[in-house]
Simulated assay, not measured.
Amino acid sequence: MAKVALVTGVSRYLGGLYARRLSAEPGIERILGVDVVPPRHSIGRAEFVRADIRNPMIGRIMNQAQVDTVVHMNVIATPKDTGGRVAQKEINVIGTMQLLAACQKASTVERLVVKSSAAVYGSSPRDPAMFAEDMNAKSTPRTGFGKDSIEVEGYVRGFSRRRPDVEITMLRLANVVGPQIRTAVTDYFGLALIPVPLGYDARMQFLHEDDAVAALVTATTGPSVGIVNVAGEGFLTLLQCLAIVRRPVLPVPLMTAGVIGNIVKRSGLADFSPDQVAFLAFGRGLDTTRMHKVLSFEPRYTTRAAFESFARGLRPVVPGVEEVGDAVSGAVSGAVSGAESGAAAVARVFERLYP
């Protein structure tokens, strides 16, 4: 049972929510919340410590506080939240390396809990219907958050070999949605006009923000369980999701999705990376048997209920966007044929919509 916990990333929404929930656990004597900027939200009874996990000072904090449990929440999924892809990778990869180096030297550390992601499985047409924890990606993510998550997990496995006495739990969370959290997926489904890969209807699983935090608290206070997939029960297809959010849709040939994605990304409205495009086309399924039997965790929200909770918090669609969709039908037809002019026409429409 954890007594003194150090939590990274408490100034981010999910990290702050986790700190507040952990504060309600009577067995936790002290909680240190670490981040580079002070949180704007409540972090419960956690003590905020302004520190960068990329700095060796984090090791001194662990030793002085006699930390026995480290919860790593500061693996960032969206580059626009950090000032760009370079900063995101440095925080995710270099930050994790330095944090684990500090954990290795801290003799008091007995447990490490890591918020990982189902993005480690990637998305490809060769994927199995369900990924179990012992399966590897059929097409390994080569860029972005998915690649970072694979590297983070690799460093954690290396740490476990150097410190076999430390209990380790890694939760591979499905895409987290909810009424408050902002992620690449929620930004995408909140667009006024949503580009979708033409001819694809990917299966998706979601995890409600409350369930994500509850699972992490269970991993912190319960027995160590290794690697576990965490997702809400059931699936939604991409078209079902679009029907729930009630947004106008622009079907886009997969070959032009990257062009459209770059325009949307430059607008600052959503992160539209190559791995995000692949997820929208091919989806991903998680086997949650270990979540039920080993972690002993039951999400309150199904995949559909989690997504509907998110959709209820969306602002109404911008008036007139339906007409924009009608205006680009000819451009889509040209792009379907593979003509460069069609793809360029679609791109021009999005440049006008998202200047």
Rank of each mutant, 00 (worst) to 15 (best):
L286E: 03
A281E: 06
G285E: 04
L314V: 12
F279W: 15
A311M: 07
S333N: 13
D287T: 05
S296N: 15
R290P: 01
L314I: 10
F279H: 13
A278P: 05
L286S: 03
T288D: 06
T303K: 05
F307L: 12
G313M: 08
Y301R: 10
A305W: 02
E308S: 12
R290L: 07
H292P: 01
P299I: 08
E322M: 06
E298T: 11
D326M: 11
G338N: 01
D326F: 01
E298L: 03
G320S: 09
V321H: 04
G325W: 06
F310L: 05
S329N: 11
R312A: 12
G285A: 10
T288H: 03
S329E: 13
S337T: 11
V332K: 09
D326T: 11
D326R: 15
R290W: 00
R290Y: 00
F307N: 13
T289H: 14
V294A: 00
E340M: 14
G285Y: 04
D287G: 01
P299Q: 06
F279P: 07
T302I: 00
G320A: 02
L280K: 09
V294N: 00
T302E: 01
E308Q: 12
L295H: 08
D326E: 12
E340F: 08
H292C: 04
R300P: 02
L314P: 10
E322R: 14
A331P: 07
K293C: 00
A335R: 04
V324H: 05
V328P: 01
R300M: 08
A281Y: 10
F310Y: 15
L314M: 03
K293Q: 04
P299L: 04
F307Y: 14
V318W: 01
E323V: 06
E298V: 11
S333R: 14
L314A: 01
L295F: 07
P319A: 02
F297S: 02
E322L: 10
A278M: 13
E308D: 08
E298Y: 06
E322V: 12
R300A: 15
V317T: 14
V321R: 12
G338K: 01
A311L: 05
V317P: 11
A335Y: 03
G338Q: 04
S309Y: 09
F310D: 07
V336T: 13
R312V: 07
G313T: 12
Y301E: 10
A278R: 14
P299A: 08
P299H: 07
T302D: 02
V336D: 03
F279V: 13
S309I: 09
R284K: 15
A281S: 14
S329D: 03
D326C: 04
G338L: 00
R315Q: 11
D326I: 05
R312S: 13
V332C: 09
F279D: 07
S296R: 15
T303R: 06
D326W: 10
S337N: 02
A281T: 13
